[in-house]
Structures are given as C-alpha cells and as structure tokens.
C-alpha cells in the first residue's frame, strides 16, 4: 500500500467509525435480535431461528400495515413531486413575489411534524375543530376526517404533503434556475410556448434532482410514523397503521414488549425499502441509458 493511500485511509477513519458504530453494528445487531425471542427487559432470550418471520406471515396486522404503508407512499410521493412541479412551473419567472411564496411554502418544512400534526388535528376535529364549525355555519356537514375509515388515510397524506412539498419545491427550483437560459431562448425561437419549454427544457434539465427527490421522499414515506402517531394513532380500526407504527406498538407500547418480533418487522421493512429503492434506481438508470 502506498504511503498516500495509508494517509487516505487515515482520513476516512472518523467517517468509517461513525458508519460502523451507528450503521453497521445496529444493522447486524437488528438482524440478530430478529432471530431471538428478546423482550424489552432482555432477560433470558435465546435464538429461535426464523420463528418471528414465520409469525409475521400469519400476522394480519403486518400485511395490513404493509398495505397502508404502500398506499401512503404510492399517493404521497407522486403528489408531493407533482405539486412541487406544478408550483415550479407557475413560479419559473422567479420574481420577488415568487421568492416570497417559496419561503412561505418552505416554512412548514422547518416546523416539527409533531407540532404540525397537533395543529391539524385541532383544526380538523369534527367536534371541536375550526373547519367543521365554520362549514357547519354555512350549512355544510363534514365527516369526522380523522376518525372515519374512508377519510383518515387521505387526511394524513394531505397533511404530510402540505408539510413536505416546500422542501421538494426548493430543491427543484434550485435545479431549474441552473438550467441554461440559452436552451430556453433556442426553444422559444423554435416556437415553443411556456408549457412546452417547461416540459422539454426544464424537466429534462432537472431530471437528476427529480430522481433524488423521488428516492429520498420514497424512503421517508416508507418510514412514516410521527404524523400518524399524533393524528390517528393508527386508527380507526388500524386503517392508518403503518409498518413503523406497528413496530413501535409491538416493541414499546403494548406488553409483552416483544422486541425480537418488532425487530423482525423492522428487518422486513428494511428489505422492502431497499427493494423499492433498487427497482426505482434501476428503472430510472435504464431510462437514462435509453435516452
């Protein structure tokens, strides 16, 4: 090994240590724990093979949580990206007013999800919330959005999109402003209108950023927890219970605090996220190669 190579390894040691201690060790420990019957007290646990995974297959709550997680992700992620693109299109002029709007849209993102969820739960509450009260004043009765099976998931998604789209919008705007002005001029000379220029100049120009947003929001969406815990606690009748919520429920909330089983669900979620991210990356990479 050359001397400068040794030095390079020396320089990456701190980062490597962080990765080992905070990523690899917990990752492999989690896989080990998922093969045990460990509870939260960690007394007298032993290896039970793949029993936890076998139990998962028979646990309807896991499949219900998987379905809810996928439904949430499949709606929230495209909606967030689409809304950001729509607003980007409307604010491509980058005037002072547009800058002000972008700041306003970004504000919810810097707030705590818990605080925002509490705020929305108060606003949307059927019996004591402002929205139901004001609409009732003009003769419109709304259902209990957070306590009715058909509406709860939609409401949670709407709150999540409202909070997060400012972040995506900011990233996409930064990328769009980097697209060369000469490309727009050329397109304009060729007779392209506003929408055509957005579709054929802006979108291809920010494709990598869109992909980045897609992957990061996908991973975040698959791990959704805070807003659901505050807004619905997984209800009504588990209709908004997601995988992370179920992991929390089994491991830390309801006796017998079955950490081994909860960890096996966490390992399953890990592979689910890895698989979906891998598929997305493969698909987009292939598209790029084809083009």
């Amino acid at each position: 090994m050359k001397r400068n190579q040794k030095l390079a390894y020396l320089f990456i040691t701190p980062s490597l240590l962080i990765l080992i201690v905070f990523v690899f060790v917990p990752l492999f420990s989690a896989f080990f724990i998922s093969l045990t019957n460990m509870d939260i007290y960690m007394n007298e646990y032993h290896l039970i093979g793949f029993e936890n995974y076998q139990r998962m297959l028979e646990d309807s709550r896991v499949w219900n949580a998987t379905k809810n997680t996928i439904v949430y992700t499949a709606i929230e992620v495209p909606l967030q990206i689409f809304l950001s693109l729509l607003l980007l299109f409307l604010m491509l002029g980058n005037t002072r007013f547009h800058k002000l709007l972008r700041t306003v849209f970004y504000l919810p993102y810097v707030c705590s999800m818990t605080a925002i969820s509490i705020m929305w739960s108060m606003i949307l509450n059927k019996n004591s919330g402002m929205v139901a009260y004001l609409l009732a004043k003009i003769g419109i009765q709304i259902p209990n959005l957070l306590a009715t099976e058909g509406y709860a998931m939609g409401t949670v998604i709407a709150v999540s999109v409202w909070k997060n789209f400012g972040y995506t919008l900011t990233l996409l705007t930064a990328a769009a402003l980097g697209v060369s002005g000469s490309l727009y001029e050329a397109a304009e000379i060729d007779g392209a209108g506003w929408f055509a220029r957005f579709l054929h100049v802006t979108i291809p120009g920010i494709r990598q950023t869109i992909l980045f947003c897609l992957v990061t929001t996908l991973i975040t969406a698959l791990q959704v927890f805070d807003q659901i815990y505050v807004l619905t606690q997984g209800g009504p009748l588990f209709s908004t219970e997601t995988l992370v919520g179920y992991i929390f429920e089994r491991g830390f909330r309801a006796a017998p605090f079955d950490v081994g089983y909860a960890t096996s669900v966490a390992v399953y979620l890990f592979f689910l996220i890895a698989l979906l991210t891998f598929i997305l990356r493969r698909y987009t990479t292939r598209r790029e190669e084809e083009e």
Binding site: R3, L7, L10, F11, T13, P14, L17, I18, V21
Partner: peptide
Amino acid sequence: KRFAGGLLATLLTVCLLAGCG
C-alpha cells in the same frame, strides 16, 4: 505534510470518540 496529515486525522478520530464519552 504527512506528519500534519496524520496528526489531523488522529485529532478528528479523538474528537469523534470524545463525543461518544
């Protein structure tokens, strides 16, 4: 240069470990 580099890397590692103390 090598000495300074080594020292810097060691310092970074020590800082990191100190944070875990």
